[in-house]
């Protein structure tokens, strides 16, 4: 068990190393022009320089902050709305068609509307991120609450639990695996929208950094930004995975 985990970890490192090596070879032999594809060494140097002498750290934090707040707002609204809709079959019937219509709209398509209404402000960016990240959370929460075992509601009735207690002690924990899965997806959407908004609305952040680097042919800087985005996505996914493992112990302990 322990050995096989170690082995798979080793294998995944190996695959990553091979990928970087392939990248290096392609760059070294100039299969792609170095103007467009710098080697990993140059990208790395640029990344380090960005953090030590440049303002990459500030931009990185700006993006993280934007993503986090947008995601948090989306999660809070999504869970609250989803709980209300999911626990009421009537509301579900009324709202489902509209939700299905709004859901597949690409969130970036709302950016022009948001700019028109809210202007080129940080509030607009936050609104767009929250709007986009809302859907996965909302829909997963609705499903989670709608799928609560009816028998458990009867147990709640037999024990004369209040509506609030039923939601807190029965419905919410029961829906928590779905909610966390939705929040995981929402986080990805939040990251994407943070970057897109920064590019379109010119807010300071990694998205803007990448766009400016591309426009001025600073390819190593561009790749440094992309690597940073990848790392950000990777580590937030790990963080939420840890949260899941902690909150859903009962699932992993099942026989």
């Amino acid at each position: 068990m322990k050995w096989s985990r170690l082995l798979s970890l080793l294998a995944s490192f190996l695959v990553t190393a091979l990928f970087v090596l392939a990248w290096k070879l392609v760059a070294d032999y100039k299969l792609v022009s170095p103007v467009f594809l710098p080697g990993p060494d140059r990208a790395w140097t640029s990344l380090v320089r960005g953090f030590t002498t440049g303002d990459l750290g500030v931009k990185f934090l700006a993006t993280v902050e934007r993503m986090f707040w947008g995601w948090l707002i989306a999660s809070l609204i999504g869970v609250a709305l989803g709980a209300a809709i999911g626990t009421s079959p009537k509301l579900r019937a009324y709202l489902a068609p509209m939700l299905e219509f709004l859901r597949p709209l690409p969130a970036s398509a709302t950016i022009p509307v948001a700019i028109a209404v809210l202007g080129l402000s940080d509030g607009m960016v936050l609104a767009v991120i929250a709007f986009g990240a809302l859907w996965p959370v909302l829909l997963a929460t609705i499903h989670g609450f709608a799928a609560v075992e009816p028998r458990l509601y009867e147990v709640g009735r037999a024990l004369r639990l209040s509506r609030a207690t039923v939601i807190a002690k029965i419905a919410l924990p029961s829906a928590s695996p779905d909610i966390l899965a939705g929040m995981r997806l929402g986080l990805t959407v939040a990251l994407i929208l943070s970057v897109v908004c920064e590019m379109i609305a010119g807010r300071d952040g990694l998205g803007n950094w990448i766009l400016l680097a591309a426009r001025s042919f600073r390819a190593p800087d561009l790749y440094a930004g992309v690597i940073l985005l990848g790392l950000l996505g990777y580590f937030t996914a790990i963080a939420i995975g840890l949260l899941e493992a902690r909150l859903l112990v009962w699932r992993s302990r099942a026989r």
């Binding site: 009867e154 147990v155 924990p173 009962w250 699932r251």
Partner: peptide, 18 residues
Amino acid sequence: RRDVAIVFQDYGKALLPW
């Protein structure tokens, strides 16, 4: 009522798995 307890047949569904 709380002094009337119900034991359901489907214990798997009547317990909170978490």
